[in-house]
Design a binder for these strands. Structure first.
Lengths: 118, 118
DNA sequence: TGCATAGCTGCACAACTGCGCAGGTATCGA
DNA sequence: TCGATACCTGCGCAGTTGTGCAGCTATGCA
């Protein structure tokens, strides 16, 4: 089976068949990009702190999150906007308070993961 | 218990006790930063493809990885240097070939995670 | 000894991202 | 109706990061 694209077929390889295995393992480029984007959302300490707080404490208001993470309000708001646009969190309005929570199960699982270690 | 640092004690909060819970949930700043750095390494599609290939196919040479991921050699080399500096991968020299593999178990677990879904 | 290959490094450019400030919108209470 | 609160948005600056190119080191084979 030849999984090496034509435009790279002329490259020398050390283990040709393992290259094919690797290409099969990587799979769809879109799939990889989707996960890279997901990880990208968790790659910022402040966003990550925000998400950990939401995951373990439950729904929280923007200004409370700001205090808990040491950010100012606009910074927290902007981070939450990004996360909401990505479908990771969702906010519910109660009067003038908006409480956010984590809705993306994949991300929630990742967060559990970094809760597990010491 | 008052977990709100003195420099933020004058901020208004919606649910004061939940802010304390959130601060406790977030825990050590260094811990959060460590995980953010970890996620940061997985946040680039090419690095992620590299790591997925290594995780599922086993030890692979640099030039093979370059072919499999569509990167040119220096790009693959630089990505691997970064990952090695972070302690995520390690390389073993065999003659003039260097074969890399994933050594960070936390990262390996995360990679399994994004293998699980469709 | 000479040559090709495998991998590494430095540099410079462009693009992205985080961040704070200032100002705007919407809701609640007096 | 008026003010305060909770949140959102736009703008601009600074720092970081990805990328490609050119050249270097080291190994193996003839």
């Amino acid at each position: 089976m030849h999984l090496v694209p034509a435009d790279r077929a002329d490259h020398r390889t050390i283990d040709g068949h393992r290259v094919c295995e690797a290409i099969a393992a990587i799979g769809e480029a879109d799939h990889v990009r989707t996960w890279a984007d997901r990880f990208s959302l968790l790659a910022d300490p402040r966003r990550l702190a925000l998400l950990i707080a939401l995951d373990r404490t439950g729904p929280l208001a923007v200004s409370d999150l700001a205090v808990a993470t040491g950010m100012n309000d606009p910074a927290a708001s902007q981070a939450l906007r990004l996360l909401r646009a990505a479908g990771v969190v969702a906010g519910e309005r109660e009067g003038r308070v908006v409480r956010y929570r984590v809705v993306d199960q994949e991300v929630a699982a990742l967060l559990k993961h970094c809760a597990a270690d010491g």
